[in-house]
């Protein structure tokens, strides 16, 4: 218990940093594409798919209660209202890139961005 920060300690932290960096690179490679639509899932089931090209406001209902409001504006999806106390999802920045997500843990609501234009057609068909 003499040395406060040895060489081995430094190496282990450097390796962990490098690993985090590699994982970040791998995940961000799939991220930097402009998305086409916002997919909302509630409890793991798809709630709806909404094209980002169209400005709209979507109330997310669960058990006939409005839990969150999703706003699509200028090609970006954002949650502007939530009925949970911490409102972490409201504080998250608007998303527009594929694989970006906004999560509301208490309501189990996930908004994610998808790139394919086909999902946009799906929502029109609905």
């Amino acid at each position: 218990m003499k040395k406060r920060f040895g060489k081995r300690d430094f190496i282990l932290i450097a390796v962990l940093l490098a690993a985090a960096f590699v994982i970040w690179l791998l995940i961000s490679r799939t991220k930097f594409a402009k998305g086409a639509s916002a997919v909302v899932t509630v409890d793991g089931d798809v709630y709806g798919t909404y094209p980002l090209s169209q400005n709209q406001e979507i109330p997310i209902m669960k058990d006939e209660k409005r839990t969150n409001i999703l706003v699509i504006k200028n090609g970006k999806a954002d949650i502007t209202e939530a009925d949970c106390p911490d409102r972490l999802c409201v504080h998250q920045k608007p998303i527009s890139m594929t694989n970006e997500t906004i999560v509301c843990l208490p309501n189990k609501v996930v908004v994610s961005i998808e790139g394919s234009t086909e999902s946009g057609i799906d929502s029109i068909a609905k």
Binding site: A19, I23, I27, V103, V109
Partner: peptide, 20 residues
């Protein structure tokens, strides 16, 4: 597991750096 959506694993890199 709770939200049943694996996509939120895209937070993993940020959380790794934050954990370090």
């Amino acid at each position: 597991l709770v939200v049943e959506n694996y996509r939120i694993y895209s937070y993993l890199p940020v959380l790794l750096f934050a954990g370090i």
